[in-house]
Simulated scan of single mutants.
Amino acid sequence: MKYSLCIGAYPDKDILYHLEKVKEHGFHGLEYYGWEQLDVDIVAKEQERIGVGIIATCTRYFNLVDSSKREEYLQGLKETIDACDKLGTKSIITQTGNVIENVPREVQQQAMVETLKQCAFLCEEAGVTLEVEPLNGLVDHKGHFIQYSDEAVSIIDQVGSPNVRLVFDVYHQQITEGNVIRNATNYKDRISHYHIADNPGRKQPGTGELNYVNILRSIKEAGFDGYVGLECGYTIDTDIALNEFKKNILQKVELPGVEVSR
């Protein structure tokens, strides 16, 4: 497995600072969600200099359930794909938007499927993966349409493209449904990418109720070899927290390729 940091890990620091820290800690990439805020040509050159880059970004718009927004969504995806081509980024994360009141759920599901099928064609041509992310509606994202793993997998299966898959965010799914290891491994063939943070609080692994040694070991043993992103806040200095994460969790998971300390 490979590990990524997320923008904001070092508050008030820019993307280049984050990329340097990714390299310093022996991680494999950075998730930067608002690509449109960047001069992508300059960042592409800096990535080459530093030796690590942006491995995931987000679509411009988050609305898959409203068919009237489809053309706007697809245009934003095309622009995102163009940026990814310059940056060498292979993953594009999308959320679904909130439930539309007074519209049957199955109608909104079908709108998602139809939009994602059109996205699939664009992504297959470009060699990128669009990753749908379920979010919890109890604490952080009230009203978000896709919250449960099984419904998300059902929609992905209807789209039927290897370039449209899921982000499985352990923090969100712990809040929404629990049963984390079973879902995180049973659905591994539809999952492109994992996010991790502890619960409650969404801080670094090791600060809450989730046993990340067991979770990550199970994901590894299931054969996953993609990215795991630390999408979390930090209760202590970020560098200290990352070194503790590597020593107390990754070392016990026995993952090769990640430096435990500096």
Rank of each mutant, 00 (worst) to 15 (best):
V103M: 09
E231Q: 02
C119T: 13
R182N: 14
Y194L: 00
V103N: 02
D189T: 11
Y194M: 00
E231I: 00
S149K: 09
A241Y: 12
G233C: 05
V213Q: 05
R190W: 04
V159S: 10
V164M: 06
Y194G: 01
A184E: 03
E151S: 03
G178T: 09
K142M: 12
E101K: 09
Q204M: 15
V128I: 03
E177W: 07
S218I: 03
T115N: 11
K220L: 11
Q204K: 03
L166V: 04
T235V: 14
P205V: 07
P104K: 03
D157E: 15
K188T: 14
A222Q: 11
H195M: 05
Y187L: 10
E131R: 05
Y234P: 00
N179S: 11
N163V: 04
Y171I: 10
L130W: 11
N163C: 13
G233I: 02
V167A: 01
T207D: 07
E124Q: 14
G201S: 07
E133H: 01
E131F: 01
Q147R: 12
I156N: 07
D140Q: 08
E124S: 10
I156M: 05
G229E: 13
T207N: 07
L116V: 01
R190Y: 09
T185V: 12
N163W: 04
V132Y: 07
I156Q: 03
D157P: 05
D225F: 05
S149I: 06
A241M: 04
Y187N: 14
G206F: 10
P162I: 06
G223K: 03
I240A: 13
E125H: 04
V128L: 05
H144T: 14
P134D: 00
R190T: 09
D169Y: 08
E124I: 05
V132L: 15
S154H: 13
S218G: 09
L130Q: 01
E209A: 15
I146H: 08
P200T: 01
K220V: 05
P104Y: 00
D150N: 10
Y234A: 10
R105M: 09
Y194K: 00
Q110E: 15
Y212N: 04
